[in-house]
């Protein structure tokens, strides 16, 4: 069953298109990573899915309903980010109580255990929490609510290393015990990579990739070696990134292409070049970097 279906989804603010003709669908009980650069439209997309904001055109269906103003979508989904606003009059303990009342699948026991594990005080107030603590508390609500659709928008903002690891571990464990559809948007692709099943990469409001994470790893490869040899090899290939890494040595990231005479890896290996796997996070950076600056930030400084 498809939990989310978007077709030609467009959202514009003052004629500026934040989301542009976005079409994709997300299956039930999967963990999807929503990745993209700052300003790619990740948060806007998630808010449209959660029914917070209205799309300008196109269609979005969550649980086969239009999400904006749908009570069923709201009741079966939760949107967690560091901006989640809680009334300042309520203590953390009371906020957990409210979540229990609103979400039918809410697991008070899990919430309490996480709450204690992360050292929260029931009498504390949400608006006085530090950034990392805020994110941690919001995450607890998000996990314990056990919503069929759980959306985490940059859930680890401000968390320290240990808490982040704990969070992903908790998320995975709870997901395995209680499968549901989870979307996580994150900058830290390396961290989430291990728990993701699918990746949806968007850039400037458009979809670039929507693949299982395993395929992402096989999507491109890095080739390093003598510049001339490398250039010759990648001549008619889809080059995502290239960079001089030393005297007469070039590193290039090329999309794998099984068509034609053997895979690019084999060709490279035959030519005596070094073939490396590309980290997903690097791949996403390469994919979302403007064509004119394929050399990355170095270009800014190289060609004065």
């Amino acid at each position: 069953m498809k939990v989310i279906e978007c077709s030609e989804l467009t959202k514009s603010y003052n004629r500026k298109k934040v989301l542009n003709q976005l079409s994709f669908s997300i299956e039930e009980n999967t963990i999807t990573g929503l990745v993209g650069r700052n300003g790619a439209g990740k948060t806007t997309l998630l808010k449209i899915i959660a029914g917070y904001i209205k799309n300008t055109s196109g269609e979005v269906r969550v649980f086969s309903e239009r999400s904006f103003n749908s009570l069923n979508v709201s009741g079966n989904s939760i949107f967690v980010d560091d901006q989640m606003s809680f009334p300042p009059a309520l203590q953390l303990g009371e906020l957990l109580g409210e979540a229990k009342r609103f979400y039918p699948n809410y697991d008070a026991n899990l919430a309490k255990r996480l709450f204690d594990y992360f050292g929260f005080d029931e009498k504390a107030y949400h608006n006085r929490l530090s950034k990392g603590k805020t994110s941690t508390f919001n995450m607890i609500i998000g996990l314990a609510s056990r919503c069929p659709l759980t959306i985490f928008d940059e859930p680890t903002t401000g968390m320290d290393e240990a808490v982040r690891k704990d969070f992903y571990r908790a998320l995975l464990k709870d997901y395995i015990a209680h499968p549901r559809t989870i979307i996580i948007s994150s900058h830290h692709v390396d961290e989430v990579e291990d728990i993701l099943e699918d990746v949806l990469l968007i850039n400037k409001g458009s979809k670039l990739l929507h693949l299982p994470i395993a395929e992402v790893k096989e999507w491109a490869c890095g080739i390093k070696g003598n510049s001339e040899t490398v250039l010759k090899l990648i001549n008619n290939k889809e080059v995502l990134y290239q960079k001089e890494v030393g005297m007469n040595t070039l590193y290039a990231v090329v999309r794998k292409d099984s068509s034609g005479s053997g895979s690019i890896e084999e060709q490279a290996q035959l030519a005596g070049l070094e073939v490396t796997a590309v980290r997903s996070s690097d791949l996403f950076v390469h994919l979302t970097t403007e064509a004119k600056s394929k050399g990355g930030i170095d270009d800014v400084f190289n060609n004065y």
Binding site: F63, L71, S74, N76, P87, R180
Partner: peptide, 22 residues
């Protein structure tokens, strides 16, 4: 996670008590 149907009356009731506290 099974889908639940959310009733308007129930939601209004929950929201009301939430607001009383908030």
């Amino acid at each position: 996670m099974s889908l639940t149907t959310t009733s308007l009356v129930e939601t209004v009731k929950n929201q009301y008590f939430y607001k009383l506290k908030a």
